[in-house]
Design a protein around this nucleic acid. Structure first.
Lengths: 174, 174
DNA sequence: GTCTATAGTGCGATAGAC
DNA sequence: GTCTATCGCACTATAGAC
């Protein structure tokens, strides 16, 4: 529900209905809306890391590994569960809610940087290519692709952006 | 206010306070919240195009023109006025509100594609580089850069992503 | 064209019985 | 642990006087 409607747009009442739980029941287990969101965000973060790690296995070239991650089946038009939260001022204002979002993206960029470094070591990319910068670019293309796709109400811009990035990565082959 | 709090998070009442206008006064000129948002979104779209066009002048190489656009002064941590709206389900669900968002990004991608095509013609990029794909990648890096920066509460990931993209564009020089 | 008053709804949370 | 009742508030909009 956070994914579709965001923090502001999701009410505890709606959560109770969806979970078929009573008012008192929910407030017995969670102190309130923020606590509910914290649990959901942390769980989403863990799931996203696990899903990414599946595509990051060591088979193939670095570009292939990145492409496999970017091109895996995604519900593009629904946007990114984590990225979406950065638009929510109430989430960004609360350190407890923002922390798992920050950590997820930090982890992703670090993981992508490792893959780029692998590619450099294998001679796939020139030694001058900055792994940290390139990793940030890859993560940004993914997040931005979601934004463009939602704006257009079409998956096409997402796919174009991903293909364009892959073409650039292939083009810098040492 | 749409920029900071989004559509759901912005109340007509708050707009009246900020504009120092009365309740009746506002409803006399605008039919309601959606109409108010439509006016604001369309104006933002026009402003963003004008601002982009300033950096898109013909001086320099294609990469320089793209870099000038990406590196211009931006309030990175506030996010993109247009991109932010794609996270708002009420905006995306209303064709009247979504249309100016879609048009702004369509225009941007088309304009960037022209610049890439110029670069190909000038021999700056290989003939095989797809202008439409590359344009989508550039727009995505910009939007995704905002997302990463807000998640980290730091402009650094935005700058890394932009620099990484520029490095890739320089790397594919024909 | 602008004002004040008010409607009707849903929000997030608490109280206290069972 | 779960229930129902209720609180106080903000939301979006309308009504009707001036």
């Amino acid at each position: 529900m956070l994914w579709e409607r965001g923090y502001v747009g999701t009410s505890p009442k709606a959560i109770q209905l969806a979970a078929d739980a009573g008012q008192g029941s929910m407030y017995h287990h969670f102190s309130g809306k923020a606590e509910l969101a914290r649990a959901a965000i942390e769980r989403s973060g863990a799931e996203l890391r696990a899903a990414a790690e599946e595509q990051f296995d060591n088979s193939g070239t670095a570009t292939e590994r990145v492409a496999r991650y970017l091109e895996r089946d995604r519900e593009v038009l629904k946007g990114c569960r984590m990225g979406r939260l950065t638009a929510d001022p109430d989430v960004m204002a609360d350190p407890v809610l923002r922390a798992p979002v920050a950590e997820t993206f930090d982890w992703l960029r670090a993981r992508l940087a490792e893959i780029i470094a692998d590619g450099k070591q294998a001679g796939e990319y020139p030694a001058g290519l900055d792994a940290g910068r390139t990793a940030a670019t890859i993560a940004a293309v993914l997040q931005g692709g979601y934004v463009l796709a939602r704006a257009a109400d079409s998956e096409e811009p997402f796919e174009l952006a991903v293909q364009g990035l892959i073409q650039l990565l292939e083009g810098v082959v040492a």
